[in-house]
């Protein structure tokens, strides 16, 4: 198996609230023969707060990471977090069109989101060979959210209204992916802090639509989506007098589980909606 080296941009949430995404991204890549080299001294991409407040900040913060990746590593960049990916792509576009000239960036490297990167045929082939516990009978909906795909002028996504990368990866590990029309609908993102009422409505609708097609869990590729769907489930149950039990997974967690990578307890314990009852029922644990 030839080893691939790529630059890795974790981003702030992968060090804190989305630790599970970081741990499983690293372990899954290692198993697939992908060496992740963390971008030295990386900084925050500014997220939505930067682009909603200041045009320069919105480009300059993510741009610094691309410049470091190109000059110090010379490697293509892989980003698990959908929100960070979106900002680094926006910076890439701005740097290539020379909107700001102080950044020394030639564009010799490519910027990938981890999901699309792993959905490439060669890695799906490797993945299939690594599966020890196929997640048969697990019924899931793939939830991409906004920022992995939109707008396509920034993300270069070929099918922004109906992405399929997550289905490709999940099918390879045996998961049954159910079709639904909400895979790229919005969860409300950072509005959760100032306007939780808006997020509650959006997320409740996602739960209802997922359950309607028979899903027993939702799979994400975004720490903001994960936080809103996982951390707020209890609150939403209380507010609407419901009993939703929908574990929310990062796609990398299910990959790690199917590949027999140790440490399931560690990432499962980090969730607010404990996925272990479902995983035990299916005898994956």
């Amino acid at each position: 198996m030839n080893k691939m080296r790529v630059a890795y941009y974790p981003g702030c949430t992968l060090e804190t609230t989305a630790k599970e995404f970081d741990i499983t991204s690293r372990s899954v890549c290692a198993q697939l023969g992908i060496e992740l080299v963390e971008i030295p001294d990386w900084n925050c991409c500014g997220a939505s707060s930067a682009h909603e407040t200041n045009d320069y900040l919105a480009i300059a913060l993510p741009a610094r990471n691309l410049v470091v990746a190109e000059q110090e590593l010379g490697l293509n960049v892989v980003i698990p977090c959908a929100a960070c990916f979106n900002r680094l792509k926006a910076a890439e576009k701005a740097l290539l069109s020379r909107t700001y000239t102080e950044f020394d960036y030639e564009g010799k490297i490519k910027v990938y989101d981890l999901l699309s990167f792993l959905a490439q045929p060669e890695y799906v082939k490797r993945l299939k060979k690594k599966v020890v516990t196929p997640l048969k009978e697990l019924k899931a909906v793939a939830y991409y959210g906004c920022l992995l795909c939109r707008p396509p002028e920034v993300t270069d996504h070929p099918q922004p209204e109906n992405p399929m990368e997550m289905e490709t990866v999940l099918k390879a590990i045996g998961v049954e992916c159910l079709p639904w029309s909400y895979k790229t609908d919005c969860c409300g993102a950072s509005l959760v802090v100032a306007r939780p009422d808006i997020v509650h409505q959006l997320v409740k609708r996602l739960y209802d639509r997922a359950l309607e097609v028979g899903a027993e869990c939702i799979v994400t590729a975004c720490p903001l989506c994960h936080a809103n769907l996982d951390m707020r489930q209890k609150e939403i149950n209380e507010k609407y007098h419901k009993h939703y039990y929908l574990p929310i997974f990062y796609f990398t967690e299910l990959m790690a589980l199917a590949m027999g990578i140790e440490g399931t307890e560690t990432w499962a314990k980090g969730h607010f909606v404990d996925p272990r009852p479902l995983l035990e029922e299916r005898k994956y644990l």
Binding site: C12, T13, S49
Partner: peptide, 17 residues
């Protein structure tokens, strides 16, 4: 919220929740 977010990034270069 946006102001508090960016202030934190300006202090550490990364977000401190």
């Amino acid at each position: 919220f946006h102001k508090a977010f960016l202030d934190s990034v300006s202090h550490f270069g990364r977000l401190c929740e």
